[in-house]
Amino acid sequence: QKPVSAYALFFRDTQAAIKGQNPNATFGEVSKIVASMWDSLGEEQKQVYKRKTEAAKKEYLKALAAYR
């Protein structure tokens, strides 16, 4: 399975908490809140997710090379 983006990892980590705080929110509303949070996130915090994405990408490429 291809690795997901840094934003997708952040979304996955954040979505449940947002939904818990806003139980009646639609998926679209939750998405807007998470997107706003991502935009206001500091670069250092974004780097945490970007590093996770890079590590997953390297593992994916290694597994793909081994498969071929």
Results as ranks from 00 to 15, higher is better:
Tyr67Met: 15
Thr26Cys: 06
Thr14Asp: 01
Lys52Phe: 00
Tyr60His: 15
Gln47Lys: 11
Ala65Cys: 11
Gln1Gly: 14
Thr26Ser: 13
Val30Arg: 04
Tyr67Pro: 15
Thr53Arg: 09
Ser31His: 06
Leu64Lys: 15
Lys52Gly: 03
Pro23Gly: 02
Glu43His: 06
Val30Gly: 00
Arg51Asn: 11
Ala17Leu: 10
Ala65Pro: 14
Glu44Met: 03
Ala55Ser: 11
Ser5Lys: 08
Asp13Glu: 14
Phe10Tyr: 13
Ala16Ser: 08
Ala25Leu: 08
Lys19Tyr: 08
Ala56Val: 11
Ala6Lys: 04
Val4Arg: 09
Ser31Glu: 12
Ala16Lys: 12
Glu54Gly: 05
Lys58Glu: 13
Glu43Ile: 04
Gln45Gly: 08
Asn22Ile: 03
Val4Glu: 15
Ser5Ile: 00
Thr53Cys: 10
Val34Leu: 03
Lys19Leu: 08
Val34Arg: 00
Thr14Cys: 01
Ser5Cys: 10
Val30Ile: 12
Ala56Glu: 12
Ala66Cys: 11
Glu29His: 03
Ile18Phe: 01
Lys46His: 01
Ala56Pro: 06
Ser40Gly: 12
Leu9Pro: 00
Thr26Leu: 02
Leu64Ser: 14
Ala35Leu: 05
Asp13Phe: 03
Asn22Tyr: 09
Gly28Ser: 12
Tyr49Cys: 14
Ile33Asp: 01
Tyr67Ile: 12
Pro3Trp: 06
Lys58Val: 13
Gln1Glu: 04
Glu29Trp: 08
Lys2Leu: 04
Ala66Val: 13
Thr14Gln: 14
Ala8Gly: 07
Asn22Asp: 04
Arg68Tyr: 05
Lys2Gly: 04
Arg68Trp: 05
Glu43Met: 06
Gln21Cys: 06
Asn24Tyr: 02
Ala8Glu: 04
Met37Tyr: 01
Gln21Ser: 11
Leu61Pro: 13
Gly28Trp: 07
Met37Ser: 06
Glu54Cys: 06
Ala65Lys: 13
Lys2Tyr: 12
Ile33Met: 14
Ala63His: 15
Glu44Gly: 08
Tyr60Gln: 14
Gln21Gly: 05
Ala56Arg: 07
Lys52His: 06
Phe11Asp: 01
Lys58Asn: 10
Ser40Asn: 12
Ala35Ser: 11
Glu54Thr: 06
Thr14Asn: 05
Val30Glu: 03
Lys19Asn: 02
Ala66Glu: 15
Gln45Asp: 14
Lys50Ser: 07
Arg51Phe: 06
Leu64Gly: 15
Phe27Ser: 15
Lys46Leu: 02
Tyr67Asn: 15
Arg51Met: 10
Asn22Lys: 04
Leu61Met: 08
Asn22His: 13
Arg68Val: 04
Gln47Trp: 09
Ala25Val: 10
Phe10Arg: 01
Tyr67Val: 15
Asp39Ser: 12
Ser36Leu: 04
Gln15Tyr: 15
Thr53Glu: 15
Ile18Lys: 00
Asp39Asn: 07
Phe27Asn: 15
Leu41Cys: 02
Gly42Ser: 14
Phe27Met: 12
Asn22Cys: 04
Ala17Trp: 06
Asn22Ser: 03
Glu54Ser: 07
Leu64Asn: 15
Trp38Val: 00
Glu44Arg: 04
Tyr60Trp: 06
Gln1Ala: 03
Tyr7Glu: 06
Arg51Ala: 11
Ala65Val: 11
Lys57His: 14
Leu61Asp: 15
Phe27Arg: 13
Lys19Gly: 02
Asp13Lys: 02
Glu54Phe: 07
Ala16Cys: 04
Ala65Leu: 11
Ser5Met: 04
Gln45Ser: 09
Gln47Asp: 13
Ser36Gly: 12
Val30Tyr: 01
Asp13Gly: 01
Asn24Leu: 05
Ala17Tyr: 10
Ala63Phe: 02
Ala25Phe: 10
Ala66Asn: 14
Lys46Asp: 01
Ser36Val: 07
Thr14Ser: 14
Ala65Ser: 13
Met37Trp: 00
Arg12Lys: 12
Gln1Ser: 04
Lys19Arg: 09
Thr26Tyr: 00
Asn24Met: 10
Ala17Ile: 12
Arg68Asp: 15
Asp39Ile: 04
Glu43Val: 09
Trp38Asp: 01
Ser31Met: 09
Phe27Ile: 10
Tyr67Lys: 15
Val30Asp: 00
Lys46Ala: 01
Thr26Gly: 07
Val30His: 01
Pro3Thr: 08
Thr26Trp: 01
Pro3His: 10
Lys52Asp: 04
Phe11Glu: 08
Ala17Arg: 14
Arg51Val: 10
Ser5Arg: 04
Pro23Gln: 06
Lys2Ala: 06
Gly20Ser: 14
Thr26Val: 01
Asp39Lys: 12
Ile33Asn: 05
Leu9Val: 06
Val4Asp: 10
Val34Gly: 04
Thr26Ile: 00
Glu44Leu: 02
Asp13Ala: 06
Val34Trp: 00
Lys58Tyr: 05
Glu59His: 01
Thr53Lys: 12
Leu9Gly: 05
Phe27Thr: 14
Ala66Lys: 06
Tyr67His: 15
Pro23Ser: 05
Met37Gly: 03
Ala17Phe: 10
Gly42Arg: 06
Ala25Met: 07
Val4Asn: 12
Phe10Gly: 00
Phe10Cys: 00
Asn24Lys: 12
Leu64Ile: 15
Ser40Leu: 06
Ala25Tyr: 10
Thr53Pro: 05
Arg68Gly: 12
Ser5Gly: 10
Tyr60Gly: 09
Ala6Thr: 02
Phe10Ala: 00
Ala35His: 12
Phe11Thr: 07
Val34Asp: 02
Leu9Ser: 13
Pro3Ile: 06
Ile33Trp: 03
Ala6Trp: 01
Ala6Glu: 15
Lys58Thr: 10
Trp38Lys: 01
Thr26Asn: 13
Lys46Met: 04
Ile33Phe: 03
Leu41Phe: 03
Lys58Asp: 12
Val30Met: 08
Thr26Pro: 05
Ala63Ser: 14
Val4Trp: 05
Leu61Phe: 07
Lys32Tyr: 02
Lys19Val: 09
Lys50Arg: 13
Glu44Trp: 03
Gly42Pro: 09
Ala8Met: 15
Lys52Gln: 05
Phe10Ser: 06
Ser5Val: 01
Glu59Met: 03
Gly42Gln: 08
Lys57Val: 06
Gln47Ile: 03
Asn22Val: 08
Ser31Leu: 02
Lys32Leu: 04
Ser36Asp: 11
Asp13Arg: 00
Arg12Tyr: 08
Val48Ile: 09
Pro3Ser: 11
Gln1His: 14
Ser31Asn: 07
Tyr60Arg: 09
Gln1Leu: 09
Glu29Gly: 00
Leu41His: 01
Phe11Asn: 07
Leu61Ser: 15
Tyr60Lys: 14
Lys46Gly: 01
Ser5Glu: 11
Lys62Gln: 09
Leu9Ala: 11
Gly28Phe: 10
Ala6Cys: 04
Gly42Ile: 00
Ala16Pro: 13
Trp38Thr: 00
Lys2Asn: 12
Glu54Pro: 09
Gln45Ile: 03
Glu54His: 05
Lys58Ile: 07
Lys52Cys: 02
Ala35Trp: 08
Lys19His: 07
Asp13Cys: 05
Glu59Tyr: 02
Asp39Ala: 11
Asp13Trp: 02
Gly20His: 12
Lys2Asp: 05
Lys32Glu: 08
Tyr7Ala: 03
Glu44Lys: 13
Val34Gln: 00
Glu59Trp: 02
Ile18Ala: 02
